[in-house]
Amino acid sequence: MILHPGILALLGGSLLSVLLLIKASGLGLTILLRWDGTSSSEQQLALEHKTWLISSLLNAGLGFQIVSGVLFLATVEAIHPLFVGAMCATGTLNANLVGWLVLLVKGLLFFAAALWVIFNRLDQRSEDAPLLRPKYLALLLITPLAFLDLTLQYSFFSGLHPDIITSCCGSLFSEQGQSVLSELAALPPVTAMALFFPVIAIYYVLTLCCLRSQNALLRYLLFITVIVAFFIALAAIISFISLYLYQMPSHHCPFDLLQAHYNYIGYPLYAGLFGGTLFGLLPGLAAPLQHHPSLSAHIDQLDRHWLWISLIGMTVFLAIALWPMLFAPFTLLRSG
């Protein structure tokens, strides 16, 4: 275990958010058991008050997840000089197998918390709160996820010893490696582009169609497309987008983008991708809720907002990714 301030901050913060979420799910459980929308007893009033506390606990939890995601990557980057062979964040993550798992759980937790907060807002717009039960049941699932995040993070950091010799992007993302990630890097840019551009094109077409039509099927298709596009985009970042951003023919690291050296370009890039994905999921998720009379008007109204935000996010992502391809002197694919 390394007594590094960033690590202590992350572990302390995770512990705090687990405590907040345990409190929230305790309250959520009471509400699930006792809620009676037709009653006006003092007890019901107290339960209604509790819904406010839960909302704000979850809002705090989401805010925390976003900051702690950034802090996690920054910390992993900051401690890489402790490990022989590590030249950036990838090296630290490799020092211990759990590292990548932490990243995955953090990503899941971000999406879960964000979806919860958004659907909670939607539910609060209606007078009869039709999503009350599913909402608090979902809360009971998010809490163990946060707990998993804490324990994985602990085992990751406690398993880090300064004398570990690790491998870094050079070997992990090298085209000769054997891991999944090196498969991605080995994904020839041409293949990656052949997957990436069509799926992005489909995304744009579907989003524009959704903006013009109320059709639920289109929204389900968009939902699936967004998920596929998200993973292809991540693969594309490793396979060729990073090469253009770094202007180097074999630098595949997805984390160096977040460094001051590259003007923190990775932050808007990933924010665009995550935001675009999150809001692209929403119309498809909300479409089945249209049958609640108290929600349908609100969904119609929010649907357009979501589609626009998603569109803006994806466009930011795409603009940053494509900029150096179109305007920088570096060329990966030589003609002829």
Partner: peptide, 28 residues
């Protein structure tokens, strides 16, 4: 900037979390 981020996270997050429940108690 990393040190500033760590410091901010360490000092602001616990304070905000600590005031959450008391704030709710007065707000209801």
């Amino acid at each position: 900037p990393y040190q500033i981020l760590v410091l901010a996270f360490l000092t602001i997050a616990p304070y905000l979390a600590c005031t959450l429940i008391p704030a709710w108690k007065t707000a209801v």
